[in-house]
Design a protein around this nucleic acid. Structure first.
Lengths: 198, 198
DNA sequence: TCAACTGGCATACGATGCGTATGCAAACTT
DNA sequence: AAGTTTGCATACGCATCGTATGCCAGTTGA
């Protein structure tokens, strides 16, 4: 059949809008992205946007949900490759740090996202990648690898450290060199979570 | 004399604008603050703003510089009260975390600032409070209290951890309880910087 | 199968906010 | 005291957003 079903058409429209918005937000930032411009680039108008996402913020939420899901997968992959659970936490955090260096993720999720939508803990998807780190930490506590600590708090601290380091690195004159320093320092900090200190 | 000198008039105008903008940015956020509105509230117009600060971003920079200076002072005070240099680092960082809970600082410096002006390392004042923490860490390294590490990187990581924790705490249902957990976890992380581990 | 209906998207309109160009008066200069 | 500079206000044009309205394709029920 040549004519698609209604639901498919809608999904296609939403997909086009999310892709166009993601590109525009990444390149120009949320505030400087004109809804008229990137909807036109998707072969649509603002009418489609308002109908499907309510407003500009709604579309940003959709874009962020997509990015968050991708980050979650990549973090899980990094953790899966690690030799030990402890190394898994380090690798997943460092993977996050490296992803946070990518302009698209940095601009949309780390800069515009919190400024426009508020703290990630209040986002619809609850920022799945944050919850994942908290779970990793909980498992390490149960295994006795690290001392008991509030997992959510520790996850949030590690995440923030990586996030802020990424902003710093991306703005640095020599990102690769600075990245190495940051990773080393990050490892040192994370070790503070390990077993009892004399 | 009734007529003030020119330089004084200008300082007064700039002060009025910064105060009005600071209030508006804190209450509504940068994007939602109308220049017409808050300049009028200061008894001025956008003409004064453009003449003195170039544009809206220029005014935000001025507001941030003012906040940064205040934060620097309060961090130094916290460090000065500490019994030991190591405790000084902890106290100054926790003071930062607590300041980051204040709506004005959180909204302007942590959310809108980076989104609009980019990474703090590129701000005109270089974010003095970040440099201060780096210096504190350098002194601790020289004293042999903590193992050698890139001070700037470590400062940035600690700062990011505190910053992100503050966003989380402020968005939580029971901030005081969450703050306590965050401070404890932060202390644990920071201890990763201490002397050699067995 | 056909008629009524629903839903998805486009178009049109009004309102708001920004940046620049211009004007004017007070303060500095010599 | 006349000329010059400077600080700020006013006025205009442009871009962008949100809503109200309209239209056509797809859906539904007899």
């Amino acid at each position: 059949m040549v004519a698609k079903r209604r639901a498919e058409m809608v999904e296609e429209t939403r997909g086009k809008l999310v892709r166009a918005a993601r590109k525009a937000f990444a390149e120009k930032g949320y505030a400087a992205s004109s809804m008229d411009d990137f909807t036109a680039e998707a072969g649509l108008t603002r009418g489609a946007l308002y109908h499907n996402f309510g407003d500009k913020k709604g579309l940003l939420q959709a874009v962020i949900a997509e990015l968050d899901a991708e980050i979650l997968v990549r973090m899980a992959a990094a953790r899966a490759r690690a030799a030990t659970p402890w190394q898994g936490l380090l690798d997943e955090s460092i993977a996050y740090l490296e992803m946070a260096l990518e302009p698209e993720i940095q601009r949309i999720m780390l800069l515009d996202g919190p400024a426009v939508l508020g703290d990630p803990s209040r986002w619809p998807n609850q920022s799945a990648c944050l919850r994942a780190t908290a779970q990793t930490i909980e498992r390490l506590i149960e295994a006795g690898t690290i001392r008991p600590v509030d997992a959510e708090a520790a996850a949030r601290l590690l995440n923030g450290a990586a996030l802020n380091a990424a902003l710093w690195i991306a703005a640095a004159d020599d990102p690769p060199a600075v990245l190495a320093k940051a990773v080393e320092a990050f490892r040192r900090l994370a070790e503070g979570l390990l077993g009892a200190r004399p």
